[in-house]
Write a protein that binds this DNA or RNA. Structure first.
Length: 272
DNA sequence: AAGATTACCTGAAGGC
DNA sequence: TGCCTTCAGGTAATCT
């Protein structure tokens, strides 16, 4: 499940390897992942050079330019999207699109077809995601506090809400709440300012650490070079229901919050 | 308004 | 070549 750290790793790899290359072709096997028509997307992008790679929350934006102007392709990997290059790779039925960057094929693969690729009007602040909040790594405490302090939904739901701050998904929300010692059902309105600050601090900390370790591979995320991320072994709670807490030994429990499975330590994260 | 629920998809896992 | 149900969760749409 690609969240901010996984998308950041893809963005960095794309930037390091493909910026400066011209897009010579676009093989589209399943147009359903495209928001615009294949014709529109091809005519906007082919012949242009990749000039930059941007990320906002879990959104990836590729910036293309040529003498005639610029075009921007926004990509969201949703649940099972992957972008990678791999020597000798033969695309299987889940590869829906392949970019040809001057002879180098970059594949978009997505088992569940939830991901989307969309031409947008800006490389940094496209109107298509105007409703999405600031990036979780960029947001500062006063603004975050202003956006959540009055809210009465469970903190878990608030952290998953991309319109408040963008980047956390189910895995890193559970990890952040565990590190902050906050139960997923606690409500922001009932938490004191120091606790709210601690949740934000821990969220940024776990995101940065996961980026450093190449992200988390739980189901089928692979990085740009087709390799799994290394952060799974660092997870404290996600996927560990029934196992014991690393810190206190209490058996970790699972709850459903905001329609998501949520693993927490009943001892480190008291309900009130 | 804000919170809650469901649709979109496929594959893995488990019950029988 | 077993069939069926449940679960996984990011986002948009739809409900209360």
């Amino acid at each position: 499940m690609p969240e901010l750290p996984e998308v950041e790793n893809v963005a960095r790899a794309l930037s390091d390897t493909m910026v400066g290359r011209r897009l010579d072709g676009l093989k589209i096997s399943y147009p359903g992942v495209l928001v615009q028509s294949p014709r529109t997307i091809r005519s906007a992008l082919i012949g242009k050079t990749l000039a930059g790679v941007h990320r906002h929350g879990k959104y990836l934006i590729l910036e293309f330019i040529d003498d005639s102007g610029s075009a921007h392709l926004m990509i969201h990997l949703r649940m099972t999207g992957q972008i990678f290059i791999l020597d000798g790779y033969i695309p299987d039925k889940h590869v829906h699109l392949t970019f040809n960057f001057e002879g180098c094929p970059v594949h978009y693969r997505d088992i569940r077809k939830f991901g989307r690729l969309e031409l947008v009007d800006d490389a940094v602040n496209p109107s298509a995601i105007a409703h999405v909040g600031p990036d979780m790594l960029e947001i500062r405490l006063p603004e975050w506090r202003r956006r959540i302090a009055h809210r009465t939904a469970p903190i878990k739901a608030i952290l998953l809400d991309q319109s408040i701050a963008a980047g956390l998904g189910n895995i890193y929300v559970d990890e952040s709440l565990f590190l902050a010692g906050v139960h997923p059902l606690r409500r922001p309105r009932d938490l004191d300012p120091a606790t709210l600050a601690e949740v934000l601090r821990r969220a940024k900390q776990v995101l940065r650490l996961a980026i450093k370790h190449g992200g988390t591979t739980f189901m089928n995320f692979t990085n740009f070079h087709g390799k799994p991320g290394n952060f799974k072994t660092k997870l404290c709670v996600y996927g560990r229901s029934g196992q014991s807490c690393n810190y206190c030994g209490t058996t970790l429990r699972k709850l459903r919050v905001a329609g998501r499975s949520s693993v927490f330590c009943p001892s480190c994260q008291p309900e009130s």
